[in-house]
C-alpha cells in the first residue's frame, strides 16, 4: 500500500502534528514501508478464526459502582500550562 503526500498531510492534520515538506517526503516513504511490512499478515488465512485479544485465558475485570477517586482538582490541573480556578485554560475554541 502506497501512502501518498496527501494522505500523510491528512493524517498529520488529524493528529494535530505540524509536518514540513521535507518531513512529509520522509514520512511518505516510512509509512509506506511500515504498512507494507504489516500487510504481510494478510497472507495468513484467518477465515473462521476468532481474534485473539489476550494471550492468557482472561476475562475482563470489573469494578464495583463505588466512588473511590477524585476530589483533588489542584492535582489535576497541576501540569497544565495555564489554569484558573481549577479550570484548564486553553486557546479559544468555538465552532
Amino acid at each position: 500500500m502506497k501512502i501518498d503526500d496527501a494522505t500523510v498531510r491528512h493524517i498529520a492534520r488529524l493528529a494535530r502534528i505540524k509536518v514540513s515538506d521535507a518531513e512529509a517526503k520522509t514520512l511518505e516513504n516510512e509509512l509506506t514501508g511500515i504498512l507494507g511490512w504489516v500487510e504481510q499478515l494478510s497472507e495468513v488465512d484467518t477465515d473462521g478464526v476468532e481474534p485473539m485479544t489476550c494471550v492468557t485465558d482472561m476475562q475482563i475485570h470489573m469494578r464495583k459502582d463505588e466512588v473511590t477517586d477524585g476530589g483533588y482538582p489542584e492535582e489535576i490541573v497541576k501540569n497544565a500550562p495555564e489554569s484558573t480556578d481549577n479550570f484548564f485554560v486553553v486557546p479559544k475554541v468555538v465552532e
Binding site: D65, E66, D69, N86
Partner: peptide
C-alpha cells in the same frame, strides 16, 4: 445512572466544583 464513572472511581454527581470529580484516568 451510576455513582462512579464508566472506567474510573470518580463521582458522577452533577454540579461539582471544576475538576473536583476527576481521577487520573
Amino acid at each position: 445512572t451510576s455513582k462512579a464513572k464508566l472506567f474510573s472511581g470518580a463521582s458522577t454527581e452533577f454540579g461539582a466544583e471544576p475538576n473536583a470529580q476527576v481521577s487520573l484516568v
